[in-house]
């Protein structure tokens, strides 16, 4: 028992390059800027996040602990949260004050969204969950202004704890699996002819434009429905696949099968295609980008640094961008 616990504890001593978490941090920061910034630019802050006495449509808005602590849903409080959220998002993108920026952005967004649950979506929770994991991680170790100021280079080879990346992965799988098992409608199943995506795309609430043309490619929507449903329901296999990938030296038929069918690249390809098509065909806010912000966690810890090195070397072949760890 103690030996098993100690083996488990080894997971929390494991370190790896910080690039995956850094990319997730930048993506989350951009999503925060978009989700709050678009409310400001559309003039909707007072309409959706303040009560009727201050120009909102709701007689009374919801108040979470932070808003209550700050003095209630007054315009000054709501605008403080808006500005705090925007500053937190910008700091995340730039990569300064990593944990504090994630905490400020996450708490501001949680409080704002709580003000009006009628104008919220699951993408908000996806974002606040990711931000909390960034609070727990050293996401500014590389690809950040903090790194530039500390080490004189934008990138660093300093290793960071790996467990926050595992948390991102577990959260992503929990989201996909949970949404998969809730798709109980007849239309998601063979009994309903796998017609769910077709009818979802006919719902005017989320349409970008007229979608009658989709009837001419109905079999494609049926294929997409079946694929999405099966892909979500089998998403926990991703955790197994990541474990298999990390332990290739061990024996096992299943491990070999996963490697042969390229499970992880196929999973990522389906996920990215599904999210991009959703964004192309439907207005679902930041959903696509928040979901994709989790994807760097799927990559091998060395894949993203290698990719960035290749990219930066191509851009400026004579410059050296990465600093080694300084101890």
């Amino acid at each position: 028992m103690i030996a098993r616990w100690n083996r488990f504890i080894g997971l929390f001593r494991r370190t790896e390059p910080g690039d995956s978490l850094a990319v997730a941090r930048i993506a989350c920061g951009l999503c925060v800027l978009w989700t709050i910034g678009s409310m400001v630019s559309a003039g909707l802050v007072q309409v959706l996040w303040l009560d009727a006495a201050h120009g909102g449509y709701r007689e009374r808005v919801g108040v979470n602990w932070l808003v209550a602590l700050l003095g209630g849903p007054e315009p000054a409080v709501v605008w403080t949260l808006v500005i705090g959220g925007l500053l937190g998002g910008a700091a995340l993108v730039a990569g300064i004050a990593g944990r504090v920026a994630a905490l400020v952005a996450g708490q501001a967004l949680t409080a704002l969204v709580f003000l009006n649950s009628q104008a919220a979506g699951s993408y908000d929770l996806m974002l606040t969950n990711a931000l909390w994991i960034l609070v727990l991680s050293r996401s500014t170790a590389t690809l950040s202004l903090a790194c530039r100021l500390r080490r004189g280079a934008w990138r660093s080879a300093v290793e960071v704890p790996a467990w926050p990346r595992y948390l991102l992965l577990i959260q992503l799988v929990a989201i996909y699996f949970s949404t998969g098992i809730q798709k109980l409608s007849n239309c998601w199943t063979p009994a309903g002819g796998f017609s769910a995506l077709y009818y979802i795309l006919q719902q005017p609430s989320w349409q970008r434009g007229d979608m009658h043309w989709i009837a001419h490619v109905y079999p494609l929507t049926q294929f997409g429905t079946a694929l999405t449903w099966i892909w979500e329901l089998t998403s926990p296999l991703l955790l197994l696949a990541v474990y298999f990938r990390a332990t290739p030296q061990r024996p096992g038929r299943l491990r070999r099968l996963f490697a042969r069918i390229h499970y992880i690249p196929v999973f990522v390809a389906i996920g990215v295609t599904m999210h991009l098509l959703t964004w192309l065909l439907m207005d679902v806010g930041t959903f696509t980008w928040v979901a994709l912000a989790y994807y760097p966690a799927i990559a091998r810890p060395t894949t993203i640094p290698r990719f960035i090195t290749r990219l930066t070397n191509r851009a400026s072949p004579h410059e050296k961008h990465v600093c080694g760890p300084s101890r």
Partner: peptide, 9 residues
């Protein structure tokens, strides 16, 4: 956590 997304068209 609340992940009921596109449960039914």
């Amino acid at each position: 956590q609340a992940w009921s997304m596109f449960v039914a068209p």
